[in-house]
């Protein structure tokens, strides 16, 4: 009768604790240094509760969200940001919030993460007539503004992107289409709208560099260029702040930049859009563009009585 004999492991075979602990440390170090995996190695998990916002449309695949970007600080081609943003260091980071506020304050990333992270699935409509559906992780701008207590005189919120030519190849060299820093702005009531968020992540991970790490603006009812990336400064102002594309071509890009199928870009139509990530040639998905990118029910009242053709 066979008797079960537990395998006897000689003590000499046992891996010393310091060695296996060391292996873990090595792996962790390699992960932190971005040696393992590809471009997204530095993305760390960023868990957040579902925020209840979901258009119920198929998500744009993560590889498309992170490889097809407009982020001119890293170059003007769609694949440039993913290719060129490796040297960018999004940590440590500080975001300065000031201007017409009672309590100006500089936030680090831990402080920002403490402002109530939620997952929000939003449509993203680029002014170039393509669109995505992206699961962001972020917090409402209102939560941030509550911390600094805007003064009654504050009417607008100005956003400013980092300038680091040594890490951002698009900010170096002779051929630069835009002036830096990239600046954007919202009316205070727009920034206070519950749909307007600052995102720290997407797809349950911290933002990849090419998507605007470590913190960016997301305003789903406006064209994508309003979503300034890698924010270093938020300033409350009394006057309408400048915005980068509006400075470059005021007749093509307005301050409001609300998604509007009835107001065309002077050179192309905004009536329809191509959904990114629908597959090769034969899966290509052209669909009608929705008023306020489908968020008219939530935000149209912000613009009651305003001529949306004049204030494009």
């Amino acid at each position: 009768m066979a008797v079960y004999r537990p395998p006897v492991l000689p003590p000499s075979e046992i891996t010393p604790q310091e060695i296996w602990l060391d292996r873990r440390r090595l792996l962790a170090g390699a992960l932190a240094a971005g040696l393992l995996g590809s471009g997204q190695a530095r993305a760390a998990p960023l868990e957040a509760a579902k925020g209840g916002y979901d258009p119920g449309e198929p998500l744009t695949p993560q590889k498309d969200v992170t490889s097809y970007n407009n982020f001119y600080e890293f170059g003007s081609g769609k694949s440039d940001p993913a290719r060129n943003s490796g040297p960018f260091r999004p940590e440590p980071w500080t975001l300065e919030v000031g201007g017409l506020v009672a309590k100006p304050r500089t936030f680090d990333l831990d402080a920002l993460r403490g402002l109530g992270l939620e997952e929000r699935v939003y449509r993203m409509r680029c002014v170039e007539a393509w669109s995505m559906v992206i699961p962001w992780v972020g917090f409402s701008i209102s939560a941030l503004l509550d911390q600094v207590e805007p003064l009654a005189s504050a009417k607008y919120v100005a956003f400013e992107t980092v300038v680091r030519p040594e890490e951002m190849s698009g900010q170096r060299g002779a051929f630069q289409p835009l002036d830096w820093p990239y600046v954007e702005g919202l009316r205070l009531d727009e920034a206070r709208h519950p749909l307007a968020i600052l995102a720290l992540g997407l797809y349950g991970e911290t933002l990849p560099n090419q998507n605007g790490a470590p913190v960016r603006l997301v305003v789903p009812w406006k064209y994508g260029f309003k979503g300034a990336k890698s924010l270093v400064k938020i300033t409350l102002t009394e006057e309408e702040p400048p915005s980068t594309w509006n400075i470059l071509a005021p007749h093509e890009y307005g301050f409001y930049a609300n998604v509007n199928p009835e107001v065309d870009h002077p050179r192309w139509s905004q009536a329809s859009e191509r959904r990114i990530g629908a597959g090769g040639f034969f899966g290509s998905d052209r669909r009608p563009t929705l008023s306020f990118n489908g968020y008219a029910g939530e935000v149209a009242s912000l613009y009651a009585g305003m001529d949306l053709r004049a204030k494009y």
Binding site: T60, K63, D64, S67, Y68, K78, S79, W130, R274, I276, G277, G279, G280, F281, F282, G283, S284
Partner: peptide, 14 residues
């Protein structure tokens, strides 16, 4: 493009 290797927006790229 037909085999979906032209990136996220194959029609535009092509």
């Amino acid at each position: 493009g037909a085999t979906n290797q032209l990136g996220a927006d194959p029609v535009k790229s092509f």
